[in-house]
């Protein structure tokens, strides 16, 4: 039982990461209709920035700075690279641009900061021996189960982000504008919404979210390099598909499902050893067959 709970906790830890990246994907998709393959690499770049800043300022401040840069950067990318291609109404072209971004943004931090593995200081309680910049994460004991502070921090972040986003989308005019533009950009312009700004905002929020998640993921392990987000991306896509690509709640739930399923499969289902990725994939296929728009996605209605 303890083992089960322990694996559950691990799964939640991973699940929050997948869910957060899925959330960033969904944000961009909901506001601009683009599937952003470069999501992980954008988070990677801001992670490197946070690491760099953390050499001079406390790590929390470093992450905040990285957020700001990510926010602005995301907006610029949308305006300069994505918008012109998107307006030509060819979604495949947009995919190619995000792929190009994937390659470029992955290379950028390696060019600037080098290819060596780096260490991210931990923004949560940890034990550090003298001279150890990074330290090891402390854990909280709940009964017999050890819950790492990393998982707690990730979970807290997730809750905060979801709450803020919910407030934004449901309770502010800006959020309403975001939803309107996602649904129908032309009509939104006609009622005076600055569609351009809202498109940029979608990307900005998403990149900013990545700037928070990335460093947390990096801090969770003993070191990170340019491949930090690549394992996460496939699971994030799966999580977003599982939850329904136009649902914020779906992304979070999807992430948790995928993370927990992965952890439990690794532990308990031995024949699948080595192909753990099979389970989330089968899960998604199963869900999509029953609910083709994901668990929480909305049915698209075609008016004939």
């Amino acid at each position: 039982m303890t083992l089960f709970l322990q694996q559950l906790v691990n799964g939640i830890g991973n699940g929050v990461v997948y869910g957060a990246v899925a959330l960033a994907l969904v944000l961009i998709y909901r506001t601009t209709g683009v599937l952003n393959f470069a999501q992980g690499e954008m988070a990677l770049f801001t992670t490197y920035l946070a690491w760099k800043f953390a050499r001079s300022v406390p790590v929390a401040a470093a992450i905040a700075l990285a957020f700001v840069i990510g926010f602005v950067g995301g907006a610029i990318i949308e305006r300069v690279l994505i918008r012109p291609v998107e307006e030509a109404r060819s979604p495949l072209n947009v995919v190619i641009v995000t792929l190009g971004l994937f390659l470029g943004i992955n290379a950028l931090p390696q060019l600037i900061f080098g290819t060596d593995s780096q260490q991210m200081p931990k923004p949560w309680p940890s034990d550090a021996a003298p001279g150890d910049v990074v330290g090891t994460t402390r854990a909280v004991k709940v009964g017999a189960v050890s819950v790492s502070w990393a998982v707690i921090a990730l979970a807290l972040m997730m809750v905060a982000v979801c709450a803020l986003l919910w407030l934004l989308f449901q309770k502010t005019r800006l959020g309403l504008a975001l939803r309107a533009v996602a649904s129908n950009p032309e009509s939104s312009r006609l009622v005076g919404i600055n569609a351009g700004l809202t498109l940029m905002l979608g990307w900005a929020l998403s990149a900013g979210l990545g700037a928070i998640v990335g460093p947390l993921v990096a801090a969770r392990s003993t070191g990170f390099d340019a491949s930090l987000m690549q394992g996460v991306l496939v699971f994030a896509f799966s999580a977003a598909a599982l939850g329904g690509f136009d649902s914020v709640l779906g992304a979070v739930v999807g992430g948790l499902v995928v993370g927990i399923a992965e952890a439990l499969t690794t532990q308990y289902v031995d024949p699948l050893n080595g192909i753990e990725v099979l389970l989330p994939l089968l899960l998604i296929l199963g869900v999509l067959l029953i609910r083709p728009n994901g668990l929480f996605g909305r049915r698209t209605v075609e008016r004939v």
């Binding site: 190619i96 792929l99 190009g100 971004l101 390659l103 470029g104 992955n106 290379a107 950028l108 060019l111």
Partner: peptide, 8 residues
Amino acid sequence: ALFGAALI
């Protein structure tokens, strides 16, 4: 990186 830029 160059390849990606060229694609775009």
